[in-house]
Structures are given as structure tokens and as C-alpha cells.
Design a binder for these strands. Structure first.
Lengths: 189, 189
DNA sequence: TACGTTTGCCTAATACTCCTAGGTATTTTA
DNA sequence: TAAAATACCTAGGAGTATTAGGCAAACGTA
């Protein structure tokens, strides 16, 4: 019979697309097998198991997201960089909800260490170059930014901001204003 | 044969405890049935299905968390209230990781509307009474606080802050300082 | 206290997902 | 073109979710 031509990368890409369509938690080995018109068991030559498949999708999403952020950040500094970073992050989550959810998957130490997660933390730190922060304030500020962006996107996605007339479109730029103001006037210890 | 005496509430409580022990996503109908020494099918007289069980655990967690926050907030204002709120939130997540994850479950509109989630948003707004913010800044600030706390707890739990010498114990109070400073000097539109 | 009703828990059965072992056929390579 | 690698298969076992229908314990009432 004709072969479909599977390999780990095609499975990962199809899994990422499937995640965006139906949700990351609904990406299963059998759903993916159905998508390619093969039997479940056939996937196990390319992927160790279900967890491995999910990890690969997570790593793909982290790479893509890091690439986007890097592109958005190029040549910008200060508040421009802050906004570019934040928007890249948020836009990715909206365009690719499944991949974004995948990027949140908890990776074991070793896997995370060799993933694009490292680029993410370096880029977050790079934003702060336009502001005048010394350690340990810089680390604290990195954590604040990461927390706020991640939290905002998560709550927005969960529909947490839908019960008031104020739209999230209006709120978002104001939050960037606020964070910019905060970074320019970081409180003394 | 002797009956165990199941009912929806006991199942929900046991499910919440199980969530804290093994993770919310590992709370299954069959695991819970095993815990009580009964057959899977027996649970379906008390709970509609797996989703219903998870929703009940989520609602329980939201109630508990709201109670804690309310207690922490009583009689406080300004930065005191901010810190009490944030700590109640964070402590709950650390003591009850499974329940906290459950509280993040996406509820449909109607369910959310009748849940303790409403108390949560009211309490978040109450914090701001000690600061001088008019609408729509108040709504934006509520969203910023919610995002930051939620995001911080999520990233901390995922181990996102473990790769640097600066501990999260040191960072956390500084983030509260920063948010307090920000609320006192909210930028003009 | 006996009787009927409720209901807590059971057995049986179906369906879906994950995964292993071992086989066949196709493609690659030497 | 024969050998090696490998893409996909069949078969089957285990766990989870769920429905349908049954028996017996507990409860309310006459």
C-alpha cells in the first residue's frame, strides 16, 4: 500500500495545526493517526509516545514564538521594544491558541535547558536595556513583565475580561503605558 | 453489601484532595472510584460525567480561595490590602496546587456567573479603593493586578524562576512594592 | 413491624485512547 | 540487484468514560 511518508517533523507540524483547531489537550495519537489515514500504531515508529509528541509540539511553538519576538524586537529600544515584545507574544497566542497552550507545557529541566525557552528569557532581559535598572531589580522586573504578559494573555483567552464594557483592546495599550512608567520609576528597595 | 455513602459533595472533596496529591488533570472518574473502593459506574449516580466532576472541583476551589482572600482583606487598605490579597492568592496556589489548577478551568458563561468568580472580581476591585483611580483606569488596573498575580503564580509553579540565583522569595515582595508604586502613580492617558 | 419506594451500588457491555510485539511490503543503498 | 532499512500493518492488552438495567440496603409510612 502507498505510504503517506510520515516522520517526526510532519507529525509535529500536523499536531500543532490540530492543536490550534481543536485545542492542545485534544491532540491525541489516535486523532493524528486519523488525520493521516493510518493506524495508531504506525505513529510509534516516529514518536516515542503521547508525551513525546506533546513535548515536540511545545518545542516547536517555543521556537516559533521566539523567532517572532526576535523579529519584532529588532532595532527597537525602550517603550518601543516593550510594546513590540508584548504584542508579538499576545498576537501569537491569539493566532495560535493551541500552540500557545503547548508552549506552556511543563518541560523537564534538561529539555527546557536546550529549548528556545532560553532565548525567551534572554530577550525579556534585553527589553530592559532601555531602562536604568541594576541587579537584582532587573531580575525582578523581568519576572514582573513575564508574569504580567503571560497572565494577561491567559486571562484574556479564558474570557476573563468579557464581563465589562471596557474592551481588552482599550486596556492593553494602557497596561503597556503603565509598565513603561513603572520601569522608568522602579521603586528603591 | 455495605454502602460507602457517596454523594456529589464527598466526591468533589475527595476529588479536590486527589488533585492536590497527583494533579488536577489526573483526577479521573476511575481514580476516584478506586479511592472509594467502588466501581466506576457507581459514580454516575452522583455526577453527570467527568466534566461535571471537574467543574464541581473548580467551583469548590473558587469558593475556598474567595473565602481566604476575603478573610485576608478584612480591615486592610492600600498597600496592606494589596499584599494581603496577593499573598492569599499565592499561598493557596502553593498549599493546594491541584485545587488552584482546578480554579483555572474554563467555565461556561452561566456557570461562571453563578460562581465565586464574581466575588473574586469584586474583591480585586476593592483593593483599589485605597488608591486614587477613576474609571476606566480602575478597570485597567484591576486587569493588570489580576494578570500579574495569576501569571506570577503560574510561572512560579511551572518552575520558570528557578534558573537564577535570585529566589522568588526575594522577588515577590519587590513586585508588590512595584505594583504599589505603580498604583500610586498611574500614568495619565 | 411489614410494605413499598427510593436509591446506592452492582454487572454487563460498548467505545475510545495508549501502547507493545511482531509481520509484510516498500524504499533505499551498496 | 540483493541486502538493509524502514514505513506501515494486524493483533491484542490495558485503562478510561459512559449507558442500561438489576439487586438489595435504607427509608418513609401505614
Amino acid at each position: 500500500m502507498a505510504r503517506v511518508g510520515l516522520n517526526a517533523e510532519r507529525l509535529t507540524r500536523a499536531g500543532a495545526e490540530l492543536a490550534d483547531e481543536v485545542g492542545f489537550d485534544k491532540v491525541t495519537v489516535s486523532a493524528l493517526a486519523r488525520h493521516f489515514g493510518v493506524k495508531d500504531a504506525s505513529l510509534y515508529s516516529h514518536v516515542r509516545n503521547s508525551q513525546d509528541l506533546k513535548t515536540r509540539i511545545a518545542l516547536l511553538a517555543l521556537e516559533e514564538l521566539a523567532d517572532r519576538v526576535a523579529a519584532a524586537l529588532a532595532g527597537r529600544a525602550g517603550k518601543d521594544a516593550l510594546a513590540a515584545f508584548a504584542n508579538a507574544y499576545r498576537d501569537y497566542a491569539r493566532e495560535h491558541p493551541g500552540r500557545y497552550a503547548a508552549a506552556q507545557l511543563e518541560l523537564d529541566y534538561e529539555t527546557a535547558r536546550n529549548s528556545a525557552a532560553v532565548r525567551h528569557s534572554r530577550m525579556t532581559r534585553a527589553i530592559l536595556r532601555g531602562y536604568d535598572l541594576a541587579e537584582p531589580d532587573e531580575t525582578d522586573a523581568v519576572r514582573l513583565l513575564g508574569s504580567t504578559f503571560h497572565g494577561y494573555v491567559a486571562l484574556e483567552r479564558a474570557g476573563g475580561f468579557q464581563h465589562t464594557p471596557r474592551t481588552t483592546e482599550d486596556t492593553w495599550p494602557r497596561i503597556l503605558d503603565a509598565l513603561d512608567a513603572l520601569l522608568r520609576n522602579w521603586p528603591k528597595a
